[in-house]
């Protein structure tokens, strides 16, 4: 029973981690609370659904398609709600991305209808027994995709030129620009990567819960925020670990304490972290005035 719950917790945590990675990348580079991120996640789920349902794509193509569509959405977000907005007013980009959130959510409601849609069974359901644990092929698939994506991303951030440029920009825009980093391009790439990963997370969430709706973005966004904070603002590996951690905490509290208290725990963690350890469990990459 406990092993089973641990696996469920890791599954939930993996999707939290994928959402939070995008948040924390974007926060690191722009110091912006990117509100529309949850809606990008939702649109990724719908893109995957339509690719499987009407495009006849297999699940890998659907994942790739959702990733590309969401990355394009990230580009649109930069040109519409980040670049044209005044930089010297802290609330302006926050509000413009809130505007984008409202547009995306209601566009989805308008075009796709407000109800929950069933996600087609894209992977054959098989059960494997390993010692005391029973794990399904769907669970292996989701965990496998999520973890390999995180590894690739970690490698990208730590060991490539673009990754170094992203880290430099997160430290300081002016210094990075002086050192020859094209800051505008870095911001664009960061949004593309963050949004693309959120798109994959959306499809994985659709497979896991076998149903998606235009309103799934908001709660995903809030959970992503908590994870970002828990891992330390701007800290990508921190977000990965914190995501898995929050997933475990939620599943275990739901299993052993009660399902309505589950959200209470995550928000209590949010407040405790804010009060006693605002740099997160693993330290913020981008020290900010608090």
């Amino acid at each position: 029973m406990l092993y089973q719950q641990l696996i469920n917790g890791l599954m939930l945590g993996a999707s939290y981690a994928l959402i939070a990675i995008g948040y924390t990348l974007i926060f690191g580079v722009l110091k912006l609370l990117y509100f529309a991120h949850g809606e990008v996640f939702m649109i990724g789920a719908f893109a995957g659904l339509y690719l499987v349902l009407y495009g006849g794509a297999n699940i890998y193509v659907a994942l790739l398609g959702a990733m590309i569509i969401c990355a394009l959405l990230g580009v649109i977000a930069v040109y519409v709600s980040v670049r044209p907005v005044a930089k010297d007013r802290p609330l302006a980009p926050l509000i413009s991305t809130i505007g984008l959130t409202i547009i995306l959510q209601n566009l989805a409601v308008y075009l796709l209808g407000g109800q929950q849609v069933a996600f087609p069974e894209a992977i054959k359901q098989e059960l494997y027994h390993i010692g005391p644990i029973t794990i399904s092929s769907v669970q292996i698939f989701i965990l496998g995709i999520a973890i390999s994506l995180m590894v690739v991303l970690w490698f990208f951030i730590e060991h490539t030129k673009m990754g170094r440029a992203i880290r430099a920009t997160a430290e300081n825009h002016e210094t990075a620009a002086l050192l020859g980093v094209d800051v505008n391009r870095v911001v664009l790439v960061t949004f593309m990567i963050g949004s693309g990963i959120a798109g994959v997370a959306g499809v994985l969430d659709g497979i896991k819960n076998s149903g998606i709706s235009p309103f799934m973005g908001l709660s995903a966004a809030v959970k992503g925020l908590i994870v970002m904070l828990l891992g330390g603002l701007g800290n990508v590996p921190g977000a990965m670990i914190a995501g898995l951690l929050l997933g475990l905490i939620e599943i275990l509290s739901a299993a052993y304490i009660g399902t309505t208290e589950r959200d209470f725990f995550s928000f209590a963690i949010l407040i405790l972290i804010l009060l006693y350890r605002p740099t997160g469990l693993f330290g913020a990459r981008t020290p900010e005035e608090r």
Partner: peptide, 10 residues
């Protein structure tokens, strides 16, 4: 409403 918000901020 969302469009208005973005235009306002620009």
């Amino acid at each position: 409403y969302g469009v208005i918000l973005i235009l306002m901020m620009i």
